[in-house]
């Protein structure tokens, strides 16, 4: 079995969010790893516009992302030692919010729990809730590109729960 695969073409973030099933071609053959001897790629070039549809779903997601951003911001402010761990997650929520293309107002200020580990647990719970909400939003959305985007966001937020577990264990 050859151990070295074919070079994989670069994938921009826009392509990631907008490509249709032709993306499997970007990943060559099987979509995850190419079968030995297959050698074939099937990139279709079937690229849709970065459409976001479903105004109400958009607002729901944007409002939730804004709340998460506020929670991370207040937690980082209260526990600045967590900045290196939490700031990347905060930035990712800002990207999620930007992907909705919707502006929503900031939620009312809500101070984080006074104990660090409790504050991390609260973030973890919020991420878990968000991941489940995003899955529900996926079922309400109709535009395939928006469904894809929401799937990425749901996956990201589910992974944040694991990331926060590591943060908690390191304290």
């Amino acid at each position: 079995m050859p151990l070295t695969g074919q070079p994989i073409p670069p994938l921009t973030r826009r392509q990631l969010l907008t490509r249709s099933t032709g993306l499997a071609g970007v990943f060559a053959g099987a979509g995850v790893l190419s079968a030995c001897g297959s050698g074939a790629t099937t990139a279709s070039g079937n690229e849709a516009s970065p459409a976001i549809s479903g105004a109400q779903v958009n607002v729901t997601v944007a409002t939730s992302e804004r709340a998460l951003i506020a929670q991370y911001t207040s937690t980082i402010s209260a526990f600045p030692q967590l900045t290196p761990s939490l700031e990347p997650l905060l930035r990712q929520h800002e990207e999620h919010l930007a992907a909705t293309g919707v502006e929503v107002p900031d939620p009312p200020d809500q101070p984080p729990p006074s104990e660090l580990l409790v504050a991390i647990a609260a973030l973890s719970q919020a991420e878990l809730t968000a991941a489940l909400e995003r899955r529900e939003s996926c079922l309400l959305a109709s535009d395939p590109d928006f469904v894809r985007t929401l799937t990425f966001i749901a996956a990201s937020e589910a992974s944040h729960v694991a990331a926060l577990k590591t943060v908690r264990q390191s304290q």
Partner: peptide, 21 residues
């Protein structure tokens, strides 16, 4: 997708806004 993204992070990959390789 969520399970896969979670396992990637558990294996030590950094979390991403839009998880991919």
């Amino acid at each position: 997708a969520s399970e896969c993204a979670t396992r990637a992070v558990v294996w030590g990959a950094p979390s991403q806004a839009f998880p991919h390789d």
